[in-house]
Structures are given as C-alpha cells and as structure tokens.
Amino acid sequence: MKPFTTHTGRALPLDRADVDTDQIIPAVHLRRIERTGFGPFLFGEWRKDPAFVLNDPRYAGASVLIAGPNFGSGSSREHAVWALEDAGFRALISERFADIFRTNCSKIGLLTVELPAESVRALMDAVLDDPSTEITVDLRELRVSAPAVDERFEIDPYTRRRLLEGLDDIALTLANAEAIEAFERGRATRLPSMAPTGRPA
C-alpha cells in the first residue's frame, strides 16, 4: 500500500447525501476480475448527464472529493473505492462515511476524513465558489486546511499508523500467527466445517 502523509489538491464538490456504492460504480461494471481500470466507470450513470459535476471541466484533475453525509452506503463492493482511486482521488471528506466503505478505503490507502457538517459545508461552498481552491489534508498533523477552513480531524490511531507507513495489514496480522494458532487449538470441535469428516454424505 502507498503511504499517505499529506496531500494538496483541488476538490470535486459532490453536494449530495447518502451516495450509495451502486451510484459510485453501478453493478454492471463489476464483472471484471481485475483490480484496476475502474476509473472510467466512476459514477457510471450520473456522468452520462453533461451537467453532472464530474463533467465540469473546471473540476478536471480534482484529487479530493467533498461529499454529503453517509457517503458510500449500501453494497460492500470495494470496486467503488478502486474506481475513486483509479480516477485520481487521494482523499475523501464527508461528515460521515458508511462503515464498510470507510474500511475499504483504509485498506488501499485512500484517506477518509470526517468533519463536522459546518466544516464540510464551508469546504463545499469554497470549492463551488472557486474551483481552483486547493485543499490540504495532512495526516501527520491531522489537519484539513483550505483558505476558508483550518480544522483538526480524528482518525483511529491504528489506521493512521498503517496509512502513514503504508503497512500491509495482512503482514501485520501474520506477525501474530502464534496467537491465531493458540486460538485455533482452543476452538470446539463441534463447530461447523467443510472438511470431509465434518460433512455427512
């Protein structure tokens, strides 16, 4: 995973609440078995509308997404996160992200920043007013700054460390292989299993 320390870039204002992952990437695009190349399908239906903000040339090249609350609700599809990453986004800002979506972002190094509603509003308005507005998201200092806003944000320390150092969390877990083995030794034998012995004909 690519480490995330700090990022400065222009932002895309997606002023809608409850944007679900079916909108971020419609299911019809999930048939591919690759992990890359989903960017062109980002907001696959909405982008067919020429007036959709993603089609506004003033926001071309934006790398920070500012969204309404409950962004990423619905399906667990990580393809939504891959599409955002592939389209060049590095950080997402919302009042609140859906649980699975936020976790998915953290696994690939895409930073989700949760800010109070007023601060998200201020950023959204600033970017709507002036699309050239640059936003800095600093994970070391836990600060979001833009001409209109300078705000601290919270993130759990484990995710912060993983993102800062770009750590692969499977490797982190495998470093505890002994604890996993010990746990497995204590598991009841009656628990369900697909092993042939546990499987009546």
Binding site: S75, S76, E78, T103, N104, I170, T173, I180
Partner: peptide
C-alpha cells in the same frame, strides 16, 4: 464480501459484510 451477510445474524451469529481487501485478509489469516 457482501453487505447482506447480516442475514445470518438471525441465528444469533455475528455476521457482517466486508470488502475485497478484507476477504483477502480472512483467506490468508482466518
């Protein structure tokens, strides 16, 4: 790797949906 994994909670299991990176994590580490 599906958000409706919550279905299985009807039995008193703790069942939840995960993303593909987490699927890989569970495959590798259980």
């Amino acid at each position: 790797g599906d958000s409706h994994t919550s279905t299985h909670g009807a039995f008193g299991a703790l069942a939840f949906g995960i993303g593909t990176s987490e699927v890989e994590h569970v495959l590798a580490t259980q």
